[in-house]
Each structure stands twice: as C-alpha cells, then as structure tokens.
C-alpha cells in the first residue's frame, strides 16, 4: 500500500512568534522544522505501509524557499521519498489554495491512503485536509485516534463529542490523525544518514499544471484587516504555599460564593 503523508514545515513554535507588520502573515524566517502534529501521520503511515507488506511512504509538502529540513526529519524516520512544492508565487496562500496545490502533487504519487494532521500547529485552520479530499475525489475521515487497514478499507476510531465512532471507508481515502494516534519514533542515526540521500522531488506551480497568477496572495480571497493587542488579563495575587496555601483558596471560593 502506498501512503502519502502531508507534512507541514513550520517555524519552531518554541521560538518567539511574530506577525509581519506589513503583510500580517506569520514571519517565517530561518530554518523550518517538521510540524510535531505531522510526526504522528508519518509514524502512522510507516506502520500501515509496513503492515500491508509492500509499498512505501511518500511525503508531500508545500513550503517556501526550497525548505527541506522538516522533510529530512520525516525521511529519517523512514519515509522513502518526498515531493516538495516551493514557489515564490505561493506566498500568502490560503488553505483552499494549499489544498489545490497539494492535490496536484499528491495525484502524482497515486496513493491508496493520504494522511494529514487534524490541524497544523502554526495555521490551525483544520480545513485543508478535507478540502484536499474533495479535490482528490476521495472520502475522508477526520479526527482519527486509531487507524487500521484491511481488505481495501480503512477503519478509523473517530473522536466525537460523546466518545468515538467506528468509521469504515473504502480506499483510496484521506484520514486526519490526532496527536496520540501512535507514538512517533525518534530517527535513528542510521535513519538520519540514510535520509541524506533519499530523493526529494522539487516542483513549481507551473510544473504542477497550475497558473501562478491564480495562487498565493493573488488567489486568496481573504485578508487581514488589523492586528491589535488583546485586553490582557492581569496577574493577580501570588501566594507561596507554606502549608496554608489551601486556606487562601478556600477564602477565594468563599468570596465568589462558590461554597
């Protein structure tokens, strides 16, 4: 079974984040890293491909500046190859545009299963994978907390408000996985070395057969009007517990008439 895993390469979330004051988009400078949320998809893909007894994992990513750092991390985990779409024309793309671009790239890999995360860490629009499924003409199951594949079907435990549903769907399909669906492996030293020579096919928008004029900020039909600081909560009283800290909590609850 051939699995495509969507992986987003993002600025390190641990680093201070900022918006570009002119364009109101996230500042993406320096090296990008593999979105943690996508490490679950990569691991899931590797396990499913292995269990199916053949086929491999292809990564698909859209990122600026020919960025491959995050892809190398996922290749080091065990993915076989990657497709990277990188093009200056894509700057300012919204989720729908991203889906159109990734759909074109994914069609080339002829996958049986496409995996993505329920939402990315930096953008968290959470709609890209379903838009992708619609463009690919595939069914989709979102919010998977367990995934298995048997006889041409994917079975998913899908989170719900009340608990979970067991959902079955014929392949090919798009599945979005939640954190915790599987435990991502750490790349081994051997994996890291091997990743250096694994193929990354880099494509532009026109190479995908799309019109550069219709993508990126040109194609986007939404814009940020303003960014302002929120009315911030102020820190209140801080008490260092000397064994009686609980009593201060009881007083507070009393004041609020909660007890």
């Amino acid at each position: 079974m051939n699995v495509v895993v969507c992986v987003k390469q993002i600025p390190d979330p641990a680093a201070p984040q900022a918006l570009d004051p002119a364009t109101h988009t996230l500042v993406r400078e320096g090296k990008l890293i593999l979105d943690d949320s996508d490490a679950y998809g990569v691991e899931m893909g590797l396990q499913l491909a292995e269990q199916s007894g053949g086929g491999d994992v292809t990564l698909v990513s859209m990122a600026p500046g020919g960025e491959t750092s995050g892809l190398r991390t996922a290749l080091a985990m065990g993915a076989a190859k990657a497709i990277l779409v990188s093009d200056a024309a894509l700057k300012g793309s919204d989720a729908l545009c991203t889906a159109k671009v990734l759909a074109k790239a994914i069609e080339r890999a002829e996958p049986d299963l496409v995996l993505a995360a329920t939402e990315s860490t930096d953008g968290y629009t959470g709609t890209m994978p379903v838009q992708l499924a619609e463009l690919l003409g595939m069914p989709s199951v979102t919010f998977a907390k367990k995934v298995s594949v048997a006889s041409g079907n994917v079975s998913v435990e899908r989170q719900t408000e009340a608990g979970y549903d067991e959902v079955v769907c014929p392949l090919p399909a798009v599945v979005t996985v939640t954190a915790g669906v599987v435990e991502p492996r750490y790349p081994s030293f051997k994996g890291i070395m091997a990743a250096k020579s694994k193929p990354i096919e880099q494509l532009t928008v026109s190479e995908l057969g799309l019109d550069p004029a219709g993508v990126g900020a040109n194609g986007a039909s939404q814009e940020v009007v303003s960014v302002v600081a929120a009315d911030d909560r102020k820190a209140g009283e801080i008490v260092v517990d000397d064994g009686e800290g609980y009593a201060r909590v009881v007083d507070f609850l009393d004041q609020l008439k909660l007890i």
């Binding site: 619609e134 069914p139 719900t160 009340a162 608990g163 549903d165 067991e166 959902v167 079955v168």
Partner: peptide
Amino acid sequence: AVDTARVVSRHVE
C-alpha cells in the same frame, strides 16, 4: 465516491 465513509458503531464515554 466521496460519500462512502460509514459509521459502523458509536461509543459513548
């Protein structure tokens, strides 16, 4: 084809 995902059972926690 896009409308082929089916719920086979529901679990309430």
